[in-house]
Design a protein around this nucleic acid. Structure first.
Lengths: 139, 139
DNA sequence: TATTGTTATACTCTATAACTATA
DNA sequence: TATAGTTATAGAGTATAACAATA
């Protein structure tokens, strides 16, 4: 029964985070989803196919298309045909993409800092552990 | 810096919760937002005006309108003109609304239970406390 | 026939701006 | 003139289904 309250809290806190992040990201012309896609590419350290990107972002491939469309139009990534498999599209991050991502990362850091301001470092670690355990139980 | 990871986790876990909740709510013909509105009415223990409902749900009044439209069409609430102030609309929950909400609450409980299955009761309390502290620092 | 990506479409959640009715 | 609510519109995030190109 108290899980209802816990769920509600999760919803409220996440929305607050989104809100702050969205505003800080606005000057960069990025949405949170686009920033996440850039991050996935940087973390991978190599170009990713659309399906792989979808996998990383935990969304269906169809939903990746508009995200990459926007990033490509902004010159932050480019699409290349995978020479190994002509059905596949490789998404390559550009230098501009790397630069913008650094600023997006800072935006997220600040949004998180604002949000979690009341928590001590130790409490944040705790929170990270708890959420990490929850997420880890799935894929 | 690690707040980036914490923010990301929050996003992933919340989406997972939403997903499970959405599926369990589907047979009831409710969206999570509609269920939240019913909950606010029940918690208040009396009819609420649109503005008050918006306040409770932490969204702007305009965003409440379609939620109440849907609930009204389903016969779960009804709108009444506030006799004390004819500009105001009172949203009244119906008996059918109360019944459906009980099932929605159970759906959310189950979705939460599935999600937090890996956590002990104590860990859930911890999580609730941490998120509660974060949310409490704002309104 | 199976896989990759896209076109088409839709729904949830939320917001801002402009309008109407009432105070 | 200020408030309550709605009409109109938009944008982020996500999904399913159908289809084209390639394997």
């Amino acid at each position: 029964m108290d899980d209802v309250e816990l769920s509600e809290l999760l919803h409220l806190v996440t929305r607050r985070l989104r809100h702050g992040y969205l505003h800080r990201l606005e000057p960069l012309g990025l949405t949170p989803g686009q920033a996440r896609a850039l991050r996935a590419l940087i973390d991978a350290g190599r170009p990713l196919r659309m399906v792989q990107l979808a996998d990383q972002l935990r969304i269906v491939p169809r939903s990746v298309t508009p995200v990459i469309d926007a990033l490509e139009e902004a010159g932050l990534v480019r699409r290349e045909v995978d020479p190994a498999n002509r059905r596949s599209t490789l998404v390559v991050i550009t230098d501009a993409g790397r630069e913008v991502y650094e600023r997006a990362r800072e935006a997220r850091r600040q949004a998180g800092q604002d949000l979690f301001a009341v928590l001590t470092g130790e409490q944040r670690d705790q929170l990270r552990e708890l959420l990490g355990a929850v997420e880890a139980q799935f894929g």
